[in-house]
Design a protein around this nucleic acid. Structure first.
Lengths: 339, 339
DNA sequence: CGACATTATGACACCGGTGTCAGCTTTGAA
DNA sequence: TTCAAAGCTGACACCGGTGTCATAATGTCG
């Protein structure tokens, strides 16, 4: 047998027509039980596998989802944000569970999207994942919607946002972080992250945090905020600049764990002890968080559930079922950096 | 315009035949420059994208590679080995660079492979990635080869191994670790990992390590070895059992960073100080390694290069070019756990 | 001016499945 | 006995491209 076996080969050996082979292999109730068995038998012997391209072409669907990972343009080439890697893992699993394949692609947010995965029938739908400047994306989202592309997006749910999102309750998570710091009596707090509305997730975390302090009558000082994107490096520099400017604080909320880890490095360098002098709380609960010194208190996002929901919602969207934005509950993980 | 545009639509609007459209879009030298321009124009306006399924079906190739990730069957569902995640990142990038898509799939080594990615024409070739019991895989590798499936494998290069591999020089890396410990004067060494030939990578690391000691006339004690698979948990338990049996040592070589991290936890718990009482060296240089306490000395595997080589070699194999097993040089990263 | 090469294009078969429709048996009821 | 319904099966068009071959138009040269 040269080349791969086709359904015609099976038909020949099983002594039936190719149509019947196709039906038998998909267990159509139309074929006789005995015929079905014989066809399966031959197919197995010839190690026959349905040609996905032919099948997809005819049925006009691919049983494949595409995951587009947007990275902070400034991030190190070699290192991917561990939070996204965790998401990738859970999305892969969720896809497998639903019988879908997963195409993975990295996109630099600056360049043009190769979002033609759906246009070219390579994928039935898209999962978009990434921090970064949300305002840049908005027009592209609209284009996707205009073209009736099926996609879901991980990130903050913003009212006027036109896309379907699954996200962590970032606002609630920020609140949790604040309430924890308040409970430990550390009310003089710094914030490292991005409080502008460019990054809706950081924005929500910050506001939840701020509002919880406000509820206790405490206003966060603008001076104690520093911008950072979600990298260790960026968190380090932001914190260093606060320290260099002689800004004092006894607690610090970082918009992500990577930022928090960078912050801890800067604090250590300045001989500021964590947690004695400064309590630190992060966000994400990446794998590293429990191993840093001291172990990092953080707000956990349930990546397993998140991946599952992204896939579920996307499949619903593809099948034309009603879907709504999904908000996942965060959970506070208290470790040594804040007690 | 209902549905997506096809090449016939373009042909209609551009006033040429569908054949010409197909040629024009692929910049065939056969079409007139002016025609080519017009076709591209119309295609852009209609947001036309070549249907990958149709194209793949006709050309019998998919411009797609599949990455099969094998996990230790015992590993935690939610947590993927960070070393593989790093590899995944670099493989994705390498694929993109070569114009290939990447399908990602997790496989539990116990279950039957869904390695029909190539049979079903979904991918042109396979990349296999994973620790785990190598002997289990051998028959499957043979099957793949019999079916003329194109695949490359990350892992130790074993002489009689029938597949094409890219791997780190595990033997040399083990040697480096040993020489470093010898240089620091810690000659009473424990080994946590798997020294059997079930895991060829761990096997090679252990032998490089052992041979370097032998070269100095030092024989490693069998009693100071404990089996572990590549998880933190497993490293923790293995080390604990050594301690519980009152085995003494002043240095420890772990077959992977995850194991080393587990080992450090067990040592700390037993009030054994790292590095004062015991020097620890790991393998992989995963992202966490620099953040644990103390920072972990380890043998780095260059994941960026590894991903690139896996993809390059696989593509060569697909194109029928000659390929050889590739051995990548490791690098010793000295950190606080051993000085 | 005729023979022939060159260039540009269209017609058409083909890749390997899926879905529709028609046809042939077989069974059962009238 | 007759006819309808149910159960299986095969023939065939079709999905949307790609590659081959034939053909028309144009240019070239003896």
């Amino acid at each position: 047998m040269k080349g791969k076996a086709t359904s015609f080969d099976i038909a020949h050996y099983a002594g039936v027509s190719q149509s019947t082979v196709s039906r038998a292999l998909r267990n159509s109730p139309l074929v006789n039980e005995e015929t079905r068995r014989r066809v399966h038998e031959v197919a197995k012997q010839l190690n026959y596998k349905v040609d996905k391209n032919a099948s997809n072409l005819r049925t006009q669907q691919s049983s494949t989802l595409a995951l587009l990972l947007f990275e902070d343009p400034t991030s190190d080439e070699s290192q991917i944000n561990p939070f996204f890697l965790a998401m990738l893992g859970s999305i892969t699993r969720a896809c497998a569970k639903e019988g879908y394949d997963l195409l993975v692609s990295f996109q630099s947010s600056s360049s043009d999207w190769q979002a033609d995965y759906e246009d070219s029938h390579r994928a039935d739908g898209l999962i978009l994942l990434g921090y970064g400047d949300y305002l840049d994306y908005q027009p592209k989202f609209r284009t996707l919607i205009e073209q009736n592309t099926k996609f879901v997006c991980w990130g903050a749910s913003v009212d006027n946002r036109p896309d379907l999102t699954v996200s962590c309750d970032n606002y609630g998570g920020g609140k949790m972080a604040a309430q924890h710091l308040l409970a430990t009596g550390r009310t003089d707090c710094a914030f490292i992250g991005d409080a502008s509305d460019h990054s809706p997730e950081f924005f929500a975390r910050y506001h939840g945090f701020k509002d919880a302090f406000l509820a206790k009558g405490i206003t966060l000082s603008e001076r104690k905020m520093a911008n950072a994107i979600s990298t260790e490096e960026s968190g380090y520099h932001a914190t260093r600049s606060l320290i260099a400017n002689n800004i004092r604080f006894n607690s610090l909320f970082a918009a992500s764990d990577l930022i928090a880890i960078g912050a801890i490095r800067a604090l250590k360098e300045a001989k500021i002890n964590v947690p004695d002098d400064v309590h630190v709380v992060g966000f994400d609960n990446i794998a590293v968080a429990s191993f840093v010194n001291p172990p990092l208190t953080t707000v956990q996002q349930d990546t397993t559930l998140a991946g599952q929901m992204l896939v579920d919602n996307l499949l619903k969207l593809i099948r034309g079922e009603p879907v709504e934005n999904t908000l996942l509950p965060p959970r506070l993980i208290i470790r040594g950096s804040s007690i």
